[in-house]
Design a protein around this nucleic acid. Structure first.
Length: 439
RNA sequence: GGCGGGUUGCCCGAGCGGCCAAUGGGAGCGGACUGUAAAUCCGCCGGCUACGCCUUCCAAGGUUCGAAUCCUUGACCCGCCA
């Protein structure tokens, strides 16, 4: 991984370019004194960002800040991704109006392994001058005794200040907070101190909801080491309609291909609302400013062509999955949503397109279940009642033809090449039925 | 530890013995329009072997012909006092 040509890597100008680019992309919410930060960033700087294992995979929301780490590395700095093996056991009160239910140690441990792997994909560990690192805060938290924790770390914290933190005070107003979650900010501060000591890490980045936790860490470093460090937060990404980003009907959009298929992932970005698409290109893509501005221009001229949407979907699918996955999935998308007849596709194209969809297998064409049963089996709807409702409402399709009648069953000639049928619910929810002959 | 308040469908939130599968809002889903977009309008939104049946209103018991609604016990949450 190298710096972009033509940009001064370091010095005042290099730091300036980096910060200006982040600002232009809308990635800078708050920071500690900007002059001091600029000054620090004019030399290779070690920075970190933490990811708590609260699920088996990261989702697209986590990607924002993860890619910021990568942006820093591309600019020559040394990123550390911290996986919260310890903090994940405790639970961050930030942004939650209710106490979290604790996950078991075994579960968290498994998630740590997976998230560590995911995070690593976006960083370069081989970079000669600025290799990335991944650390787990359990490594320094677990060996520490309670007494040590209270005396050496706890002594630096004022409960008055801890209570004043937004994440805590909000909970005091509302749902209450346990001592466990109350302590979270201390653990996160300890992480920053530890990384400061071990790796001279002087900058922490995170979502803007992490500001309180991050500045707690700055205070700790100042008290324990009489040194100052820096902080920067990234705005919480919202869609233009003010709703949470990264959720679909089926839940979160995950980075793990087993949890959100590359096809669904590609479709997710392709279906971005018009008014968000340019913003998302800035936030998620590594395309330079000029390219994004060109896309913006064409988007404004003719949004219906979805040129910017396609660029966004391609960039991200290539990045999170692979360019090969992207190509495959885009071809499938074209085949399935294109204007052409499904019957005109050749067998291989159709087969590979359908392999991207949720699939149901049939043993033979002798006894074909009803459309309703098939769509339920595919998992696209979760009950027969729901499936019947779709039929009644006129949103049920077989091979792009609307079907009527709740007890409609495909016939054997509905199977293209005698093997494939495509179920569709509404405009864009597809599933495949494939006949697998017993031999 | 004492006293008081609370726990309803994905979320918020009505209901306070029969008219309750449970008002309303949000989210979500389908249709029409368009562009696999938004906005708008219309419809839907527990399940099933479906004009009926089954399982729901924190849990377990009980009262009653009949309970989300009343009583008892328990769990969890909130507030005040110690």
């Amino acid at each position: 991984m190298v710096c972009r040509q033509g940009q001064p890597l370091f010095g005042h100008d290099g730091a300036m370019n980096l910060l200006e680019d982040l600002k232009w992309r809308g990635l800078l919410a708050q920071s500690t004194d900007e002059k001091a930060l600029l000054e620090a960033l004019s030399k290779p700087t070690t920075l970190y960002c933490g990811f708590d294992p609260t699920a088996p995979s990261l989702h697209v929301g986590n990607l924002v800040v993860l890619l910021v780490l990568r942006r820093f590395q591309l600019a020559g700095h040394l990123p550390i991704a911290l996986v919260g093996g310890a903090t994940g056991l405790v639970g961050d009160p930030s942004g939650k109006n209710e106490e979290r239910s604790l996950n078991s140690e075994e579960i968290v441990e498994q998630w740590v392994v997976r998230i560590r792997e995911q995070v690593s994909k976006y960083l370069d560990f081989e970079a000669p001058s600025n290799p990335a690192r991944v650390v787990n805060n359990l490594d320094w938290t677990a060996p520490m005794s309670a007494i040590e924790f209270l005396r050496d770390i706890g002594k630096h914290f004022s409960v008055n200040q801890m209570l004043a933190k937004e994440s805590v005070s909000a909970r005091l107003e509302g749902g209450g907070i346990s001592y466990t979650e109350f302590s979270y900010q201390v653990l996160q501060s300890l992480d920053f101190l530890e990384l400061f000591r071990r790796f001279d890490c002087t900058l922490q980045v995170g979502g803007s909801d992490q500001w309180g936790n991050i500045v707690a860490g700055l205070d700790l470093i100042r008290r324990a080491e009489s040194e100052s460090a820096h902080a920067m937060t990234v705005p919480l990404l919202m869609k233009s309609d003010g709703t949470k980003f990264g959720k679909t009907a089926g839940g979160s959009v995950w980075l793990d291909p087993a949890m959100t298929s590359p096809f669904a992932f590609f479709q997710y970005w392709l279906n971005t609302e018009d008014r968000d698409v340019i913003n998302f290109l800035k936030v998620f893509s590594f395309l330079p400013k000029a390219d994004i501005e060109a896309l913006e221009k064409s988007h404004l001229e003719n949004p219906g062509l979805r040129i910017a949407h396609r660029a966004l979907a391609r960039e991200l699918t290539s990045l999170v999955h692979s360019p090969q996955d992207c190509e495959r999935v885009e071809a499938a998308s074209r085949a399935l949503f294109g204007q052409g007849e499904l019957h005109d596709l050749d067998e291989a194209t159709l087969e590979s397109a359908l392999s991207e969809l949720p699939r149901t297998f049939l043993a033979s064409l002798n006894d074909i279940p009803s459309w309703v049963d098939l769509i339920v089996a595919s998992g696209v709807v979760d009950s027969k009642s729901a499936a019947r409702r779709i039929v009644k409402e006129g949103g049920a399709y077989l091979n792009n033809e609307k079907i009527a009648g709740e007890d409609f069953s495909p016939s054997s000639n509905d199977f293209i090449f005698g093997r494939f049928a495509i179920l569709r619910k509404g405009k864009r929810d597809l599933a495949a039925v494939e006949v697998v002959q017993k031999r």
